[in-house]
Write a protein that binds this DNA or RNA. Structure first.
Lengths: 350, 350
DNA sequence: CTGTTAGCGCTTTCAC
DNA sequence: GTGAAAGCGCTAACAG
């Protein structure tokens, strides 16, 4: 009886299938079969093997299994900074979806844009680390996505529009940002807003751009075209929303906007803050709308009119799409565009 | 020349080190060395190998490497539901810490408590899937932690007190909840509060329990002991905070509390909401304090007095502790207890 | 410096 | 129904 003394980084001596086989008096392949519930193993043998395995504290080695089956049962989620409140709900929903399908989730963050570290990580993804990728970061640079698709890795882009030729080749699960923008424009107009300002996020974010397009187009159609002088562009943060709104609103009443569209709830929050600081009552003196219907948009102290995307269903659809892609790499690219919903609250006159 | 036609689930034909070796006219082990930057490979050879590897699109197979090195360069983070705002910031910080140390992050959620699925997942962790675990869920049941430690897996518990014998055997990075409770009690008392209510979370959460202990002890010391009739216990949600506060506050003014301690900001939010609905002015008619200093506690519409934990430093300490544990499994258990800080805002009279 | 060789622990033919 | 044997792709001795 060989005395195996190999230990891993934690100093543990791993129990292998051979150890179980020896203790159970069967062959290692029978252990493997028994543990995977192979029908060919007769009941008595199987139960015996399982008991011995449990007694020895045997756990199957994931790497060895992955190496031979070529399936890691792991999905990568490439997310933006979780402190940005757009991401956690989506990541959690995805995690639940994949968990329910017996897959693990590797969390990747792209925060180090341009540093080269991210590109390095992507390489890992191609090394059999994961069976598929859900990409939900708003990273402006699509080359990462392109590279992964090129490498043949199943990939679904979630909640992020993709421009150009790539957009037509990759699976996408998105919501109707153009319509969302239209809904807000129509609502604000119906509430009497006529001098409307926009606090926008980065120009290279395709989702925000579509949102803006729908918003502007609808206002034009309604006869109150957007005044370019009332558009501010910056980051998706309350801080920028505050700063931009202070600029826009701290002017003589006659020239002051009567409504502000914050392109995300996070921005709109800063706008609400600015209104408070300037003593403007919402919605009497100023109407405010956001986008996303984050958790806190419904809290009574915020009470923000906004647009809701069906995040949970989108996560489910993304998981479905990814598994479909894994099952059939040659299938035509899929596009699911979910309808959005206007959520009217106290920040507009309704 | 053998024509290899094995393909993985995505239909890709993987390029192996042997393919590179053949194309470069060297041995496979030289390829391995060159790619890992082994000093023994001469410059000329190395560059040649690297170029060929790049041309062929070679990526090292992670499973094979893990199988032999017994290090997956992956850390598991066991988190609670990311929609609970306590978690995202911590998860993100940890992700950054491990990323900076060239480790990946496997995200595990414990949401399915008691379903058996979670236990199943833990088994995976023992199968060489990860090199270590950071446990930051508030799951009441510590058996999972115990099991992992028992199995010899390096594990650090972050931001969560652990009771009993286990607590003395496991590495912990926490903050001083007792002191945090004291700080709030002292502050409320100094602000004139005398009839103080508490909206508490689950009784089996050790962190909240310590927080409560410090709070109650300090009030007692100050001569205004907590009235048990003014304590409500429930879930860590604004909804419960609202409901509990409505009960506590919707009474004749003489019997009404003049301050409420929401054991987390998330609860305190519901308390603020209740105050608003009952027409109570904060802080004139009612003072409110929370705990955690979440992102939104500082927004002007919330403006909540609370206690701040140094989350980023705690995440760094947790990563340090975990790597130390991986390096020396026999080291004595570590306990890092971070100081907390009172953040005074507009919800108390200061 | 480079090549040869022996596994890591498992799944999966192929025999019996 | 079970066992023997052949690798999966890589790292790490050990030779030379």
């Amino acid at each position: 009886m060989l005395d195996r003394a190999v230990s891993d980084s934690a100093g543990r001596v791993p129990v292998t299938g051979y150890d179980v086989a020896r203790a159970a008096g069967v062959s290692q392949s029978t252990v493997s079969r028994a543990l995977r519930g192979d029908v060919r193993v007769v009941g008595r043998t199987r139960e015996h093997v399982l008991r011995v395995a449990r007694e020895l504290g045997y756990v199957v080695n994931v790497s060895a299994r992955t190496l031979i089956t070529r399936r890691s049962a792991t999905i990568a989620i490439v997310s933006g900074d979780l402190r940005n409140p757009s991401y956690p709900a989506l990541v959690q929903s995805l995690q639940e979806q994949f968990h329910a399908r017996d897959h693990r989730v590797l969390l990747m963050s792209d925060h180090d844009e341009g540093s080269g570290r991210f590109e390095e990580d992507l390489e890992g993804l191609r090394g059999g680390l994961v069976d598929g990728v859900v990409y939900l970061s708003a990273r402006t640079d699509s080359s990462a996505v392109a590279e992964l698709v090129e490498a043949g890795l199943p990939l679904v882009v979630l909640n992020r529009d993709v421009d150009g030729a790539l957009g037509r080749r990759v699976d996408r699960v998105i919501s109707d940002n153009v319509e969302g923008g239209r809904l807000l424009a129509r609502h604000l107009h119906a509430c009497g807003a006529r001098r409307i300002a926009v606090v926008a996020g980065p120009a290279d974010n395709p989702s925000l751009r579509r949102r803006a397009r729908g918003f502007a187009a609808e206002l034009r159609r309604l006869g109150v075209p957007l005044d370019p002088a009332l558009v501010r562009r910056g980051t998706v943060t309350p801080a920028f929303g505050l700063q931009a709104a202070l600029q826009l609103l701290d002017v003589p009443a006659a020239r002051r906007p009567d409504a502000v569209f914050g392109q995300t709830d996070y921005i709109a929050l800063g706008v609400l803050d600015a209104a408070g600081r300037l003593g403007l009552r919402v919605p009497q003196d100023l109407q405010v709308v956001g986008y996303n219907d984050l958790d806190w948009a419904g809290w009574s102290m915020i009470d923000l009119t906004t647009v809701r995307q069906p995040l949970a269903e989108m996560a489910r659809a993304a998981a479905d799409a990814l598994f479909a892609r894994m099952a059939d790499p040659a299938a035509p690219p899929l596009l699911r565009n979910f309808a959005v919903e206007l959520v009217v609250r106290g920040s507009t006159r309704s």
